[in-house]
């Protein structure tokens, strides 16, 4: 019997395939918004969700997805407020998530072994009902990540511009947070809650070494994610270690290879096509330049009829759309 004929391995591989696709898909948007560690925070909070499921006898996948979505929403609301204390609020949420989870699992009478299967993934524990939930959630994430690609790209790339095109930016930001939470739950059984963020970020960082466009980064990252997940699961079965660790180690090895190849490629293309010289930049706002109004035949005075405007220690006269101020024997543009 090969490992592909084992029923639990089939389930693990299906879950791994979907995890390998959806984690880098949402990860590309998170990295573009420079929120690489958001997945990590949500993973911590989801631990409490798992523990609640174990304590109450509900499926941990369901309680985890609910708690993760609530936590992600809280993180997004704190972030959108942009308050200085937001950083601390996030830290409290993360640590509260871990501590609460460990506490509740203890209360549920479960040991560290059970917790470990959620923290670092497990091949044998993906049940058939788990798999249905994972497939449903992962497909939903992928449909949105691809279908709303242009809108999500715009929001992550330049939020203010996106607002002026009429996009509901706050709603889309919240959607990204919720998708990240759902992906954390999808990935929980494969890479585990502590390493899920690595699968969101490392394939994207790897892809960036060789890609130039957002779309190709997205596609390449997903391909890397799938490869790392499937190869990691098979290695994990053969070596009898937690799949999360093998998946992430493989992904990191891929990054090292890509970074080396990317550096070599850039060096070569840099030698072939040197940077074209640009004209010197002009118009950089200089600190209050002294500009003389040439051939200014009129002498302004308080009664000359031109509008007067106070300017620091002197008066400017409004003159044909310009502001003129006396300076020695001539008039300055102000």
């Amino acid at each position: 019997m090969t490992l592909f004929e084992l029923e639990f391995m089939q389930r693990a591989l299906i879950a791994g395939l979907l995890t390998g696709l959806s984690a880098p898909a949402i990860g590309t948007y998170l990295v573009q918004r420079r929120l690489s560690l958001m997945g990590d925070g949500i993973g911590h909070i989801a631990i409490t969700g798992v523990a609640l499921g174990l304590l109450t006898g509900t499926a941990p996948v369901l309680t985890a997805v609910i708690v993760a979505i609530a936590g992600a929403t809280a993180i997004e609301l704190v972030r959108a407020r942009g308050k200085a204390s937001g950083d601390v609020a996030l830290a409290l949420l993360f640590y509260g998530g871990i501590a609460g989870g460990v506490l509740l699992i203890g209360l549920a009478g479960q040991g560290a072994a059970t917790l470990n299967t959620y923290l670092f993934g497990s091949l044998t524990t993906v049940s058939a009902s788990d798999l249905y939930v994972v497939v449903g959630l992962a497909v939903a994430v992928l449909v949105i990540a691809i279908g709303l690609g242009p809108q999500l790209f715009a929001v992550c790339q330049d939020e203010e511009f996106a607002r002026v095109t009429g996009l509901r930016v706050q709603l889309l930001n919240l959607l990204i947070a919720v998708m990240a939470a759902v992906t954390v739950t999808v990935a929980m059984r494969t890479v585990g809650l502590l390493l899920v963020s690595a699968l969101m970020v490392v394939p994207v960082a790897t892809a960036q070494q060789i890609t130039r466009s957002f779309r190709s980064t997205f596609v390449t990252a997903c391909a890397i994610g799938v490869t790392a997940c499937l190869a990691g699961i098979i290695t994990s079965y053969n070596a009898n270690v937690a799949p999360g660790a093998t998946i992430v180690v493989l992904a990191l090895a891929g990054f090292v290879v890509a970074a080396t190849v990317g550096t070599l490629l850039r060096r070569r293309s840099g030698r072939i096509a040197p940077l074209d010289d640009e004209e010197p930049e002009v118009g950089v706002p200089a600190p209050a330049p002294h500009v003389v109004s040439p051939t200014h035949p009129h002498a302004h005075n308080p009664d000359c009829g031109h509008k007067k405007v106070e300017h620091g220690d002197h008066v400017d006269y409004v003159h044909d759309g310009h502001l003129h101020a006396a300076h020695g024997d001539h008039w300055d543009e102000h």
């Binding site: 573009q32 918004r33 420079r34 690489s36 790339q157 960036q208 466009s213 957002f214 980064t217």
Partner: peptide, 12 residues
């Protein structure tokens, strides 16, 4: 006009 992921002129 750059985020954390490369974007081409066409995409922007």
């Amino acid at each position: 006009a750059a985020g954390g992921v490369p974007a081409t002129v066409y995409e922007v």
